[in-house]
């Protein structure tokens, strides 16, 4: 079969080479692009991808087919992007923990470090929030932390999986504040971690603002803190963890990535188009409506951010192994 594949590829390569001639990289993009989303349709990453892709279509003058490739907590689709032909015609969405943290613990992954893929743009980032029930005794982040100090391993926070992003965020707080709040996994996506809080099976919940805001408005939960620096517009009264002196600001961040080694012309066109899209009023409004923050970054800046994340995760893993 391998022979067949090679043969077929050669044949196709020949056909393309004769028809397209030497007009390779300069004409990029000369056909439609594929944008791989490593989650199922209906995830929160779908609107982000569709917004970005539809605006990129206008910039590049080509169609972009958004393709969902869910499975294995995003690593499957991310691997599909990384292993695609490095011609600039297959790009996709990469989440920060899947890109940087997953290869540190999962040795089966085809990508091992940021050298194995090419960042294009930082699409959006959002913070997690720390939520307790409305009738809980803690009114502020500090009260929660003080109480957690008094009774180590007693307080529990529901997260969406052990070593999932929101678990890591809570562990950052454990490490920074010197407390021991147990994280309890409630997998299965559909908000079961929030149900665990509402049902009183855990004392706190770490999750996104979008999954919380409805319950907060209904008065059933209280948002103690937001895991970022600076105020969060969705919950203006929540204490920013980063400003309260704790280094715990990990949140889901989504990047556009390509396989490593795509032609320079393609990369330049993709980054230039992305810059325009992300700076556009339309994109900014989309992000603001959803409670996402947006930041235009060059591929080099993104790589530097990956380095910082990698160092942070290394420290965090050390902390987790000590426990």
């Amino acid at each position: 079969m391998k022979l067949g594949k090679t043969l077929v590829r050669t044949l196709v390569g020949l056909t393309l080479a004769t028809s397209a001639g030497a007009a390779a990289a300069q004409d990029y993009p000369s056909r439609d692009l594929t944008f791989i989303v490593p989650y199922g349709s209906g995830g929160s990453t779908d609107p982000i991808s569709r917004q970005y892709a539809s605006q990129m279509e206008k910039e590049l003058g080509r169609n972009i087919i958004v393709q969902n490739k869910p499975g294995a907590a995003g690593t499957l689709g991310t691997s599909a992007i990384v292993t695609a032909a490095p011609d600039g015609y297959t790009i996709g969405l990469g989440p920060n923990t899947t890109l940087v943290f997953a290869p540190m613990t999962n040795k089966d992954l085809v990508y091992k470090s940021p050298a194995d893929y090419q960042p294009i743009a930082k699409l959006v980032s959002l913070p997690y929030v720390l939520v307790v029930k409305a009738d809980a005794p803690w009114k502020t982040l500090q009260e929660f932390i003080d109480d957690a100090k008094k009774q180590p391993n007693k307080l529990r926070a529901s997260v969406s999986g052990i070593r999932a992003t929101n678990d890591l965020t809570m562990q950052q707080l454990n490490k920074a504040a010197g407390i021991k709040v147990r994280t309890i996994p409630f997998t299965g996506g559909g908000g079961e971690a929030m149900v665990a809080l509402l049902g009183g099976r855990v004392e706190a919940y770490v999750g996104t603002g979008a999954s919380t805001v409805g319950h907060e408005k209904a008065g059933s939960v209280r948002v103690l803190a937001v895991f970022q620096k600076g105020r969060y517009d969705l919950f203006p009264n929540a204490t920013p963890v980063g400003d309260a002196g704790y280094d715990a600001t990990l949140g889901p961040t989504y990047y556009a990535i390509a396989p490593a080694g795509i032609p320079k012309e393609a990369l330049d066109k993709l980054t230039a188009a992305s810059r325009k899209v992300i700076a556009s009023a339309e994109y900014r409004k989309f992000a603001a409506d959803k409670g996402y923050s947006v930041e235009n970054m060059t591929p080099e800046e993104i790589r530097a951010e990956f380095e910082r994340d990698h160092a942070m995760f290394t420290e965090l893993l050390k902390f987790l192994e000590q426990k």
């Binding site: 499975g71 294995a72 907590a73 690593t75 499957l76 691997s79 997953a102 613990t105 999962n106 089966d108 992954l109 085809v110 999986g161 052990i162 070593r163 999932a164 996994p185 997998t187 299965g188």
Partner: peptide, 16 residues
């Protein structure tokens, strides 16, 4: 789902 461990995948990511 709980600890994101691959089981019985024999190193094939697609089986994950």
């Amino acid at each position: 789902a709980i600890t994101a461990q691959n089981r019985f995948t024999f190193g094939y990511l697609e089986l994950a």
